[in-house]
């Protein structure tokens, strides 16, 4: 625990020592506003909820989260500090978790900074705050899953740009697999089981389920196991590649 905390603190400090965290937070909050009010027509819809706000989160995460994750391990390998880190008395799990939690914390801070939208909707109307809270939790979980994928690609590539592009592509696959267009494509020829399987792998499906206000254990388990799977893969990849 001590080691995880120390690594977490260092990594979080790293985000704020460079402009990464500030750029990420600013752009995230800005785009959230733009998407919600212009594309989401938040005002025109006149509904006292944040559906039009959360609707765009998967798309924002799609390119912002890989940017957050790309440095995590790629930079360690490029700078050789991975040798320093992994010869400290820490386990691989501690190192992977400490770094992951730091990046996740930045994402959660970004979410927290969107509170003015929540305040606005409460000022304008009388929304169901339980649903909003659930959606926030769902969004944070989804961010974690995106991050875990990004972490894995960061471990895979020494080059941060390649890590970014590959993880964005992988994330896109996981988002799209729940999109009606894709599901219809599969539905046209594949048996229902396959369509179901593809859809159940999707971030969108599970996020939308939570965003409706029902925190179903299955959706939470989905995201948590997604995170666990990709972080486990990260540890394997690091172990495999550290000799080079």
């Amino acid at each position: 625990m001590r080691a995880i905390r120390a690594i977490f603190k260092r990594e979080l400090g790293g985000y704020f020592a460079t402009p990464i965290a500030y750029v990420f937070l600013t752009i995230f909050v800005l785009l959230c506003g733009v998407f919600t009010f212009y594309l989401g027509r938040f005002i025109e819809l006149g509904q006292a909820d944040l559906q039009s706000f959360f609707l765009f989160h998967p798309w924002l995460y799609l390119f912002l989260i890989p940017a957050l994750a790309m440095r995590l391990w790629a930079e360690e390998r490029r700078g050789g500090t991975i040798e320093l880190l992994l010869t400290l008395p820490v386990t691989m799990t501690q190192a992977v978790l400490g770094k992951f939690f730091a990046a996740w914390a930045v994402a959660v801070v970004a979410l927290a900074l969107t509170a003015p939208i929540w305040l606005t909707v409460n000022y304008l109307g009388d929304p169901d705050n339980g649903v909003i809270l659930a959606a926030y939790i769902g969004s944070a979980l989804m961010a974690g899953a995106f991050l875990a994928i990004g972490t894995c690609f960061s471990a895979l590539c020494k080059n941060q740009v390649i890590a970014f592009v590959l993880s964005a592509a992988a994330c896109l696959a996981f988002v799209l697999s729940g999109y009606p267009l894709v599901l219809e494509f599969f539905g046209a020829w594949a048996p229902a089981v396959v369509v179901e399987a593809v859809s159940s792998l999707s971030f969108l499906t599970h996020f939308n389920a939570i965003a409706r206000g029902v925190i179903d254990l299955r959706d939470v388990v989905y995201f948590v196991s997604m995170i666990a799977f990709w972080l486990y893969a990260t540890a394997l990849v690091i172990d495999l590649k550290k000799g080079r």
Partner: peptide, 29 residues
Amino acid sequence: GIGYLPEGAPLYSDMTPGTFLAFVAEVRG
């Protein structure tokens, strides 16, 4: 129980020596 200086003395370049040593001290318990 080991102290190690890797080849090329890699360090976290965005940290200062002070915060870096504090980090190592914390990880090392």
